[in-house]
Amino acid sequence: MTRAVVDAGADPSGTRLEQSIARVLTSGSYAAIALLAVGFALMLASGIGPLAGGPRFDPAAIPGDLLALRPTGFLWLGLIVVVATPASRVLAALIGYARRGERRMVTVAALILLVIALSVVVATRLEG
């Protein structure tokens, strides 16, 4: 029996890892939907039409918008949570595999996070 078969079938640490990753995904999804729902409700209350054209992404404005209960703050934060949740799942897997001493899977997870970081850097440079 291969190591993978053991992991996928009966290894309790494998089960724990998958369960913790599942929790990250589920909680991230529900947090994002809650933030988007609040933002959408504030949009409707403010009479903002969705097809009027939304603002550009400006992370620096988010805290102020949140404090002022402006819809854009909740909407951008919700969208950040949406795109960050899969990367959080990979980070959780990286930590889990590191604890188990699985170097190859740690390397795979680290490379995925590197590609995601590269997306941020490249897009920011192109916009700048």
Binding site: G39, I48, G49, G53, G78, E127
Partner: peptide, 11 residues
Amino acid sequence: IRGGIDPFVAA
């Protein structure tokens, strides 16, 4: 980051 997501439509 490049302005391809409109939050008012996305939500």
